[in-house]
Design a protein around this nucleic acid. Sequence first.
DNA 1: TCCTCCGGTATCCGATCGGATACCGCAAAG
DNA 2: CTTTGCGGTATCCGATCGGATACCGGAGGA
Lengths: 123, 123
Amino acid sequence: MALRRRRNRSPAPPPSCPLLACTSLIGGAWAPNVIWYLSGGPRRFTELKADIPPITPRVLSKRLRELEKAGVIDRRVLPTSPPSVDYELTALGRELLPAIQAIVDVGTRLTATGASPMASQKR
Amino acid sequence: MALRRRRNRSPAPPPSCPLLACTSLIGGAWAPNVIWYLSGGPRRFTELKADIPPITPRVLSKRLRELEKAGVIDRRVLPTSPPSVDYELTALGRELLPAIQAIVDVGTRLTATGASPMASQKR
DNA sequence: TCCTCCGGTATCCGATCGGATACCGCAAAG
DNA sequence: CTTTGCGGTATCCGATCGGATACCGGAGGA
């Protein structure tokens, strides 16, 4: 049997860029956790640090700056003494939640099949 | 004005593991492209390589093995001469498409705000 | 006989990522 | 005056990731 040549066309190119924009955001370590905890209302740096004990301040700071630059969260300095800083999901940020939920849904099926070497508490 | 102490509780911990399972899959370089092109039907290694010119065989091979191990695609060796290899989305793999679409939707809004430094064709 | 195609693998390499640790200035509290 | 908490930053480090390049055996075709 000879190797027949394929003539069928592939679908149009995927909209790769928006996907990259989103995955590079929520793909960073702890980013989904940060978003998740902010979904409960405004939260301060130290509070987030306490919410997610294993995260280092360096990484938390980096994540927050990334998310802020993407317009997903707001950083507000409050006129307290000493000044405190609130982080809060923007309207755009709240739109991320359904997407995250969709990912979680599939992720659940992925792990349910036992096909992936998950269950390790790494990361 | 003093720095008031927060007493409100944070929401329950996020289901981090399924999310990690999914993002570690679709977060890899070119992974969404591979899935996208496979959504058009079975495809061979060289065809995928041609579909996504910038991908190197090394990375394509790695992605395909990852996706196969996760149960997202099937690898089938056909009894042609020479033997050819078909990759195909499984039912589980097709369930990824809505999630990817959800990500693309948010990603579009992210880029639309102009907040992110996208538009660079990197990756 | 030599060439090409298929489906990859082997090696090297630089960039980035995230963890660990230490440290900072400021202000209030004790 | 010393300590504590806040909101980070600085430095170092190992691991991983992905790109570049080269190469492979087997089968058909010219």
